[in-house]
Computed example of a mutant assay.
Amino acid sequence: MELESAIETTGKAIDAAGVAVIVVGAVAATGVFTHRLLRGRDGLPAAYRLYRQSLGRAILLGLEFLVAADIIRTVAVSPTFTSVGILAAIVGVRTFLSFSLQVELEGRWPWQRRGLTGDERGT
């Protein structure tokens, strides 16, 4: 029972770290965005684009922590078919969110190389 308790506590700590990463990242991105706007050199479109990218990166990193915590708690503490099925659904949704955010942030599919022109991509 002590091992299960330690694993559950570890999972909760990693969950908290994931939430903290998202919150700190959002606050930092908002601060940088505000600073860029007040400085006035970048303009709203450029500052907003960088804000979205910074916020998206914070969310992606936080999601990775949250998925890791779910895996630790589910597989190590209660590996029943039901709990593994729920974990699979949670990981599937979070993976889809991560994939979608990454495509939006980078403006390309993950399997496309960076810096290719339209002709080199076949478009």
Rank of each mutant, 00 (worst) to 15 (best):
M1H: 13
L3C: 09
L3V: 14
E4A: 12
S5P: 02
A6S: 07
A6K: 12
I7K: 12
T9A: 14
T9P: 00
G11P: 04
I14P: 01
D15S: 11
A16P: 00
A17G: 07
A17N: 00
A17K: 03
G18P: 08
G18C: 12
G18V: 10
V19D: 02
V21G: 01
V21Q: 00
V23C: 11
V24W: 03
V24G: 00
V24K: 01
G25T: 00
G25P: 00
A26S: 10
V27D: 03
V27F: 08
V27H: 01
V27A: 08
V27P: 03
V27C: 05
A28D: 02
A28S: 04
A29P: 00
A29D: 00
V32S: 09
F33W: 07
F33C: 10
H35V: 12
R36I: 01
R36G: 02
L37S: 04
L37T: 00
L37I: 12
R39I: 00
R41A: 10
D42E: 13
G43S: 03
A46P: 03
A46H: 08
A46M: 07
R49D: 09
R49W: 00
R49H: 06
L50R: 12
Y51E: 04
S54W: 09
L55W: 03
L55I: 05
I59K: 03
L60P: 02
G62R: 01
L63A: 13
L63H: 07
L63R: 10
L63C: 11
E64K: 08
L66A: 03
V67W: 01
V67I: 12
A69H: 01
D70Q: 13
I71S: 02
I72Y: 02
R73H: 02
T74V: 13
V75D: 05
V77P: 02
T80N: 04
T80D: 04
T80W: 04
T82D: 10
T82A: 14
T82H: 08
S83I: 06
V84A: 12
I86Y: 15
L87S: 06
L87G: 06
L87Y: 03
A89Q: 10
V91N: 08
V91S: 09
G92F: 09
V93H: 01
R94F: 11
T95I: 11
T95N: 05
T95L: 15
F96S: 11
F96L: 15
F96Y: 15
S100D: 09
V103S: 06
L105H: 05
E106Y: 13
G107M: 07
W111A: 15
W111F: 15
W111E: 12
Q112L: 14
Q112F: 08
R114L: 13
R114T: 13
T117I: 13
G118Q: 14
G118C: 11
D119Q: 14
R121E: 13
R121P: 01
R121F: 07
R121W: 06
G122P: 05
T123M: 15
